[in-house]
Design a protein around this nucleic acid. Structure first.
Lengths: 139, 139
DNA sequence: TTAAGAATGCAACTTTGTTGCAAAAGTATT
DNA sequence: AATACTTTTGCAACAAAGTTGCATTCTTAA
């Protein structure tokens, strides 16, 4: 039986270390996006804060996770889905939802970001859509 | 001749102080959204850092400015337009654009955020759309 | 003009994020 | 399985960002 986190690391040509596996496991177990702080809370006794910063950075660069903008100075991260990781070129085009009640941020994988027409002269490279409101668990 | 910043403060039932007028002037003169840091750079010698934090907070609560989410831990602020301020109830529904070249973030007031259908059980309260790319000045 | 309330500045502090470097762990090769 | 090489980690020290309480100053409204 192989470890799912280990597979992800190998597929991304990253060396397999205990901290990386642990952080991936945290993401795999989470049903919502995680801020640096959330991860630190879960494993600060095991791993150094700096390691967590560097690991998240590495995962971002490899496209293992993507980040979700916010207005609260708490950038959150979520695992990319298979297609996104394997395609090499990273692109999320799903909507993110943050619940004002429970505070959780989730990927709405089934909701695509609709097209927008930018004014003349603007070129789009990336697009992000974050909706705030009440999630189905809190309604 | 009256001062535009002063009018905004009075309309929002805020007392008129030098720091608030100055910060409003900075926004009125800016052609792009400003982070806390940008404002601090422009008036740190005049006003305390804490005052700037508190002023931005107050402006947000009164709906004088709105904040723009980001993935770089630099929440930016921009003046709300007239309609938005006077309506009492705050709602931006324009798209924000951040240029990867010059780094500026601007409100695309003419580009409305298209409608999205959320899955059953989700209620939308607010929506944010941020596009990254190259702006018309940098193309 | 003055009294009451609101905003500011200061100090001290907490939290968040960064950098350089030595030690430890992982990888590939034989 | 031992090695040499490379990468990752932890530590320390620091820098930057954000918060809080309190005394002083400024605004406002009577």
């Amino acid at each position: 039986m192989t470890n799912q986190g280990e597979d992800i690391l190998k597929n991304s040509a990253l060396s397999v270390t205990a901290s990386r596996k642990r952080i991936l496991d945290i993401f795999l177990a989470a049903d919502n996006a995680l801020a640096h702080q959330d991860i630190e809370t879960k494993c600060a006794e095991q791993y150094d804060r700096v390691t967590i910063y560097r690991t998240l950075q590495t995962f971002l660069e490899k496209g293992i996770i993507h980040n979700i903008p916010s207005t609260d100075n708490m950038v959150r991260y979520a695992l990319c889905n298979e297609a996104c990781i394997t395609s090499g070129h990273h692109h999320d085009n799903h909507v993110h939802f943050k619940c004002d009640d429970c505070g959780k941020t989730v990927c709405l994988d089934d909701v695509n970001i609709p097209a927008v027409n930018l004014p003349k002269g603007y070129t789009m490279k990336e697009i992000n859509m974050v909706v705030n409101g009440i999630c189905k668990s809190c309604k």
